[in-house]
C-alpha cells in the first residue's frame, strides 16, 4: 500500500479531525443525546447510500430493494449479539449479518440482474417484500412484534469507523479495474461486453458489495437502536435510501454523503411531523427530477471540485 503519499495523509488528517471535532462537541455538551441520534442515523444512511450508489449510480442497476439487505444484516446481527452479549459478539454479528446479506444478494442477483431498468427495479422491490414477509413469519425474529433489548454496543466511534471504512473501500473499488468494469456497464452494456467484460459477473459483484454494506448498516442500526421490527424495512425505507442517492447525484459518493447529512438534518427538524416530512421528501424527489435530474453533485466528487478551485495544472489520473 502506498500509505504515505501527501494525498493520503491529507485524507487521514481530515478523517481524524472530523472525528475529533464531533467528539469534542459531544464532550463539551453542545451535541446532546438528541443530536447523537441524528449523527448515528446520518452515519447509517451514508453507508446505505454509498452502497446503493455503487449498484444504481455507478453500475446502473436500478434497485428498489436495498432495505431488504439492510434487514438481513440487522436481524442476523441482533440475533447473534443477543446470544453473545459482548463486543466480540456484536462484531461477529455485524460480520455475519453483512455476509448473510451478501450471500442473499448473490443468490437474488444472479437470476434478476439479467433484467433491465424498471423490470429490475420491480423485481428487487418484490424480493425485499418477500424478505420482509419472511421476517414477519419467522419465530426467531419474533414476527410483527419484533426484537427488543438488543445489546447496545454500536456507539459513535464504531459508527464513524464503519462509515469511513465503507466510503474508502467503495471508493477504492471504483478506482480499480473491476470498478471501471461496473461503470462501463452503466455506460453501455453492449459495448462493455464487447470489450471483454463479463457483464453478469460484475453486476453481481456490485450487487454483492452493495448488499454487504447494506447488511453492515443494518447491523449497526440494530445495535444502536436496540429494537427491530420487519415494518422498519419496507418499501418506504428503500425509497428513503434512494432519495439520498438521487438527491446527492447518481454516481457521486461525495453527493451521497452530503445528501445523507442534509436529509438527516431535515428529518431531525421535522421529527414530529411524519406526514410533512414525507411530503417534503416527495416534493424534493419530483422537483429534483424535473429541474436537476443529476442531483446536487452530478457525477462529480469532492476532488473534482477542489481541482477546479485551485486550478491545478497537472491533470492527475486516478
Amino acid at each position: 500500500m502506498r500509505t504515505l503519499t501527501k494525498k493520503n495523509l491529507l485524507i487521514l488528517g481530515s478523517i481524524l479531525l472530523t472525528f475529533a471535532l464531533v467528539q469534542v462537541l459531544v464532550l463539551v455538551g453542545i451535541l446532546d443525546s438528541f443530536y447523537e441520534i441524528t449523527i448515528a442515523t446520518i452515519c447509517i444512511n451514508i453507508i446505505l447510500a454509498v452502497s446503493l450508489n455503487l449498484v444504481t449510480g455507478f453500475t446502473g442497476q436500478f434497485s428498489l430493494g436495498h432495505a431488504g439487505f439492510m434487514s438481513i444484516g440487522a436481524y442476523v446481527c441482533a440475533i447473534i449479539s443477543m446470544r453473545i452479549g459482548t463486543v466480540g459478539g456484536f462484531l461477529l454479528g455485524l460480520l455475519a449479518g453483512a455476509l448473510a446479506a451478501t450471500v442473499v444478494g448473490i443468490l437474488i442477483g444472479i437470476p434478476t440482474l439479467r433484467l433491465k431498468g424498471d423490470y429490475l427495479a420491480i423485481a428487487t422491490l418484490g424480493m425485499a417484500e418477500i424478505i420482509r414477509v419472511v421476517f414477519l413469519n419467522l419465530e426467531i425474529t419474533n414476527g410483527a412484534a419484533g426484537l427488543n433489548g438488543i445489546p447496545r454496543y454500536a456507539n459513535w466511534l464504531w459508527l464513524y469507523f464503519f462509515t469511513v471504512m465503507a466510503i474508502v473501500i467503495i471508493n477504492n473499488f471504483l478506482k480499480s479495474s473491476p470498478g471501471r468494469a461496473c461503470i462501463a456497464i452503466r455506460e453501455d452494456e453492449i459495448a462493455a461486453e464487447s470489450m471483454g467484460i463479463n457483464t453478469t459477473k460484475y453486476k453481481v459483484i456490485a450487487f454483492a458489495v452493495g448488499a454487504f454494506f447494506a447488511g453492515l448498516a443494518g447491523g449497526l442500526y440494530a445495535s444502536y437502536f436496540y429494537f427491530l421490527k420487519p415494518d422498519l424495512f419496507g418499501f418506504m425505507k428503500s425509497v428513503d435510501i434512494l432519495v439520498i442517492v438521487v438527491l446527492g447525484g447518481l454516481g457521486s459518493l461525495t453527493g451521497s454523503v452530503i445528501a445523507a447529512i442534509l436529509l438527516g438534518l431535515i428529518t431531525t427538524f421535522l421529527q414530529s411531523f411524519t406526514a410533512v416530512r414525507m411530503i417534503v421528501y416527495a416534493v424534493l424527489l419530483v422537483v429534483i427530477m424535473i429541474f436537476r435530474p443529476q442531483g446536487l453533485m452530478g457525477s462529480k466528487e469532492i476532488n473534482d471540485l477542489l481541482k477546479f478551485r485551485f486550478g491545478k495544472k497537472e491533470e492527475k489520473i486516478e
Binding site: M1, I169, N172, F173, S176, S177, P178, G179, R180, A181, I183, A184, A192, M195, G196, I197, I205
Partner: peptide, 16 residues
Amino acid sequence: IAMHQNVKYGLVSAFL
C-alpha cells in the same frame, strides 16, 4: 476499461 481482461489483481486488491 478495454484492458480489463488482462488485469491480474483480484477483488481484494481492488478494495484495499
